[in-house]
């Protein structure tokens, strides 16, 4: 091991992995909640749905589109003042979170909207005919009936987020991306870059595996 990876300090790798996992986990949870909310608003305010409202729909839709179109690396820069305001620093894992969440939530919101559109209109109508409140429709029909798609959507989004954390790492947020860039690339320690890459791959594969597993488990169609 020593010979194969002479420059690799395993504690550092372990720490960086923890940071990456932390950034990913927190941003995935926040993205899930925020994206789900935005997606629900997009769906419910669209034409022929429960809260049909052209005005709100086009506003939310434009905001989502704008943030989805900005390349992540530029988004980080644009968000520096905002991040400084709430996190008070640009260094460390927490500093990456605002950009990660604001970058990923609109993307996930679109996936949520698509998932909700896939729900059979007849089922929503049947539920309305039973005398259900809108909240019942959201929590007992919309979310459960689209759950496999919501989970596979958050799987895709999580994997994108792992990639984003690496990018955020380059601008100082820590984690495996930061390690690969500073220790690996800048100091020409290829073995460090290699180990960091493999670790990221393992994380991505694990997320994909877990996501597929849950999706299949949930899908009773």
């Amino acid at each position: 091991m020593e010979k194969l990876f002479p420059n690799v300090k395993w504690e550092t790798i372990f720490e960086a992995t923890q940071e990456t996992l932390y950034m990913t986990a927190v941003s995935v949870v926040a993205t899930f909640i925020l994206g789900l909310l935005l997606g629900l608003v997009l769906f419910l305010t669209s034409k022929g749905n429960l809260w049909e409202n052209k005005f709100i729909n086009s506003i939310v839709s434009s905001v989502v589109n704008i943030f989805r179109s900005i390349p992540f690396i530029i988004l980080i820069i644009l968000l520096i003042p905002f991040t400084m305001f709430i996190i008070k620093t640009m260094l460390g894992a927490n500093a990456a979170l605002p950009a990660l969440i604001i970058g990923a939530a609109p993307f996930y919101a679109r996936l949520v909207e698509i998932a909700l559109r896939e729900i059979d209109k007849g089922v929503i109508e049947a539920t309305r005919a039973m005398g259900a409140k809108t909240s019942t429709i959201i929590f007992k029909v919309l979310i459960p009936e689209s759950l496999p798609a919501l989970v596979s959507g958050i799987t895709v989004t999580s994997i994108a987020l792992v990639g984003y954390t690496a990018m955020a790492g380059v601008v100082g947020a820590g984690g495996l991306g930061n390690l690969a860039y500073l220790e690996g690339f800048q100091r020409s320690q290829n073995d460090v870059t290699f180990v960091a890459t493999i670790t990221i791959l393992i994380i991505v594969f694990a997320i994909q595996f877990l996501g597929d597993f849950i999706t299949n488990k949930l899908d009773k169609r």
Binding site: G122, A126, A129, E145
Partner: peptide, 11 residues
């Protein structure tokens, strides 16, 4: 109410 395509919740 009942429907042509049943409209059951698959979940």
């Amino acid at each position: 109410m009942i429907f042509q395509h049943f409209n059951l919740l698959w979940s």
